[in-house]
Computed example of a mutant assay.
Amino acid sequence: MTDHMIDSVLSELERYYDTVPRVGGARAEDFGSLTLFVQEGQGWPYYARPALGGPDATTADVERVRARQRELKVPEAFEWVAETSPSLRAAVEAAGLHVHAHPLMVLETAEELPPHPLVRLLEADDPLLAAAVTVPALAFSDPGTAVGEAGLEELRAAMQDPSAEERRARVASMLASGRTGLAAAVRDGAVLCSGQYNPVGDVAEVVGVGTLPSARRQGLALGVTAALVARARERGARTVFLSAGDEDVARIYGRVGFRRVGTALIAEPADA
Rank of each mutant, 00 (worst) to 15 (best):
Q42T: 15
S87R: 15
R66E: 07
T58R: 06
R179M: 14
L10C: 10
E63T: 14
E165S: 13
D271V: 14
Q218V: 09
G96W: 02
A227I: 11
A272E: 12
G219Q: 04
R120G: 11
A95D: 02
T59P: 00
A272K: 13
K73Q: 15
G32R: 06
D3C: 00
S177C: 11
M1N: 09
Q196I: 15
A132W: 09
R235F: 06
D161F: 01
G254A: 10
G201N: 04
A158W: 06
A164M: 08
V200Y: 02
A94Y: 12
V147Q: 14
L34F: 08
L228P: 03
P115R: 12
G41W: 06
P162A: 11
G236I: 10
R167D: 03
R64T: 09
L121T: 13
G41M: 09
G96H: 07
A28N: 04
Y47A: 03
A169E: 15
E112Q: 14
M159V: 13
E63A: 15
L13Y: 04
A28D: 07
V133S: 00
G96M: 10
G245A: 13
P114T: 10
G262S: 12
A272W: 14
F241L: 13
A60W: 02
T134S: 13
P115F: 01
V256L: 07
H100C: 08
D188L: 05
A215N: 06
P86Y: 07
V207E: 14
W80I: 04
L220H: 09
D271L: 13
V81F: 11
D61E: 10
P75D: 03
E154V: 08
L220S: 05
V186W: 01
P86Q: 10
V207G: 00
A60P: 01
R167Y: 11
L52W: 02
A226R: 05
R238G: 14
T239F: 04
R66I: 15
V224F: 01
D61Q: 13
V74S: 00
E40C: 06
G25K: 03
G96P: 12
H102R: 15
L122R: 02
P21H: 04
M105Q: 14
I6F: 03
P45D: 08
A270S: 15
R27F: 04
E149W: 08
A132G: 07
D248G: 11
L152R: 10
V38M: 05
A226H: 03
S173E: 15
R64I: 09
T225C: 10
V261I: 12
E79M: 11
G236P: 08
V203S: 02
A48T: 10
G189K: 13
G151A: 08
A184Y: 05
S85Y: 01
F140A: 12
P103M: 03
G189S: 07
G208F: 02
E165N: 05
V62N: 02
V23G: 01
V147M: 08
L97W: 04
E268F: 10
A169I: 09
